[in-house]
Amino acid sequence: MTIREVQVTFDCAGPDALADFWCAVLGYDKQPPPAGFDSWDAALDAWGVPAEERDSRSAAVPPEGETGPRLFFQRVPEPKTVKNRVHLDVRAAPGLSGAERADALEAEAARLVALGATVVRRLEADGMDEAVIVVQDPEGNEFCLD
Rank of each mutant, 00 (worst) to 15 (best):
V49Q: 12
F73K: 03
M128W: 04
D89V: 04
D29G: 07
E100N: 13
W47G: 05
L112K: 04
R122L: 11
G68R: 04
E66I: 00
I133T: 04
E52I: 05
F72G: 01
L105W: 11
S97P: 09
Y28N: 08
F143P: 01
D38V: 14
L71H: 04
F37D: 12
V86G: 08
A13L: 11
V90Q: 08
Q136E: 15
F37Y: 14
F37R: 09
L115Q: 02
V132M: 01
V8A: 10
L145T: 00
A42N: 13
V113G: 07
G68V: 01
G116S: 07
A51R: 07
R4I: 09
E66P: 03
A131W: 08
E64I: 02
T81A: 06
T9F: 15
E100K: 13
G65V: 11
I3D: 11
N84S: 15
A125D: 14
D129E: 05
E124Q: 10
L105R: 07
L96W: 02
P15V: 09
G27T: 14
L18S: 03
K80V: 10
A19C: 04
M128I: 01
A99H: 08
D103L: 14
G65E: 15
A42K: 11
G36N: 00
L26V: 08
D55L: 12
A99M: 12
P77W: 00
C144K: 06
E5P: 06
F73Y: 00
A114T: 06
P138S: 10
D129R: 05
V120T: 06
S39C: 13
E108V: 07
F37H: 12
A125S: 14
L115F: 05
G48E: 05
G36H: 02
A35E: 06
V25I: 04
V119D: 00
Q31F: 13
L18Y: 04
S56V: 12
D129M: 03
F143V: 04
A60L: 06
A104L: 07
E100R: 13
R57H: 02
A131Q: 07
K83I: 12
R101M: 13
A114Y: 03
T118F: 01
V82F: 09
P79H: 01
S39H: 07
P77D: 01
R101N: 14
P79M: 02
T9R: 13
L96V: 03
A19L: 04
A17I: 11
V49D: 04
S97Y: 14
P32E: 01
L123I: 05
F21D: 01
R111D: 03
R4C: 06
R121C: 09
L145K: 00
G98L: 10
D55S: 09
F21I: 02
E100A: 13
I3S: 15
G116T: 06
D126T: 12
K30Y: 11
E100V: 14
R57S: 00
L105I: 11
T67S: 14
D41G: 13
P77S: 00
